[in-house]
Design a protein around this nucleic acid. Structure first.
Lengths: 232, 232
DNA sequence: CGGCTCATTGATAACTCTCAACGCAGGTGG
DNA sequence: CCACCTGCGTTGAGAGTTATCAATGAGCCG
């Protein structure tokens, strides 16, 4: 089996502060697991039984209404933390957007371990504070931006977030060419729009020469300044 | 001067886990401050220099676009924590909605103190995780709910959150009569609507006999079941 | 080659926003 | 004491954006 020492995100995840002995102890309570694209790790409203670290892949956090409307409330990337420690209920579902690889812990085990390792809790606190800031900025988009602004903001955010991993980078240290881990429906669920509106805004930006769309999942940013202006 | 021992939120705020000696040390680095309604404690985008605990009053957290649109991204009540420790920038502005009373710390001082007191950091982590869950639930409202559903959800949330403090409680342990700490514009900024739409939805609910509006700031919930149905 | 899913495009409707007028309450000054 | 002004909330008419419904197109796999 694979262990923490060989972990791809060993130095970026919250485990980064732990020494060899501690890593060994953490290794003992966690196990790695593969998740296929589309598969869920956690369901909204269920008891919070597991937490995890993302090793590879992209996953969405989402909530929905009874009548089937869905809102994606977060997207997690390698080294990010998943789940709800110190709480009984999972507030959001967690579903893989791409094939993913995670390091899973029983919530209880993780809580016990974390409380014995303040440095780990501190890392988790910093991450949670960052995520809260990011989430609150997203609320401005959901509540106050037009469809065009939402799409432009989305593309710019993606070009930042996807930078490390899967794409060619331009001189501005941002991504010109994106491989989106989202379908049109998922983009709609992220932005609070319908699939048709997402599609129309993409073609509008394409017709304006601001982006190119080699395929539905690929986006090339041709005029970043214009995109920034569109983002409002 | 007033000290932690007499603090109104002594047992509910994150300081609750500290013993007398620790409280004394914390008291030494904090100072109480009054904030008038409408006054700001923190401005969006500025350096994060202070953090605070709310002792009394209600404050909003908000972000805005360059062209003046605003989104309220959080509301804090007595015993809640304010500010951004372990970060250089304040992601949101903090403004008092009512006259308020807070316990302010220099961010640096607080950080040093917190890192020496894991129990305090743990409390802060739990609060931050709760707040993140609440914030994510709010995103569903912003992205996917209609104006009518937003208003109904807002009133129900208020009837929960305002329960401890300022109002008569019914047999369901929820509030029937609310004293809103928000103007119509602020409700609009919270829900991602315009002031006119907020006003129209209030009158619609009033005409339907679901609520009563003795004055703009007072709401009486007459038919909670109907309001729940409206909330979607 | 069909049959499937996903994305695009079009026509129309619905909802919310915008612009504008009016009402009401509280405060100020003559 | 009353007139006036100002801020806030309500109401109305119309426009604009986005959703809805429907059809078509493109890629993928059996």
């Amino acid at each position: 089996m694979s262990s923490c020492e060989q972990c791809l995100v060993r130095n970026r995840a919250i485990c980064a502060t732990l020494d060899d002995r501690e890593i060994k102890a953490l290794n003992a309570i966690g196990r790695q697991r593969r998740i296929a694209a589309g598969e869920s790790l956690i369901w909204e409203g269920e008891d919070s039984v597991v937490v995890a670290n993302v090793i590879e892949g992209v996953l969405k956090l989402s909530t929905g209404t009874e009548d089937g409307r869905e809102q994606i409330v977060g997207v997690v990337y390698p080294s990010d933390f998943i789940g709800r420690p110190y709480g009984e209920q999972a507030g959001q579902g967690v579903t893989a957007l791409t094939d993913a690889h995670v390091c899973v812990f029983s919530r209880r085990d993780f809580e016990v371990f974390a409380r014995e390792h303040p440095e780990l809790e501190h890392k988790l606190l910093e991450r949670t504070l960052d995520e809260l800031d990011r989430t609150r900025r997203w609320m401005l988009l959901l509540g106050r931006k037009s469809a065009g602004e939402k799409i432009a903001s989305f593309l710019l955010e993606m070009s930042d977030r996807l930078a490390p991993a899967n794409c060619k980078v331009d001189i501005f240290a941002n991504v010109r060419r994106l491989d989106l881990p989202f379908s049109r429906q998922q983009i709609a669920d992220l932005l609070g729009l319908t699939i048709e509106t997402v599609s129309r805004q993409f073609t509008r930006l394409k017709d304006a020469g601001i982006i190119a769309l080699p395929s539905p999942r690929e986006v090339e940013i041709r005029d970043r300044a214009a995109l920034v202006a569109e983002a409002g």
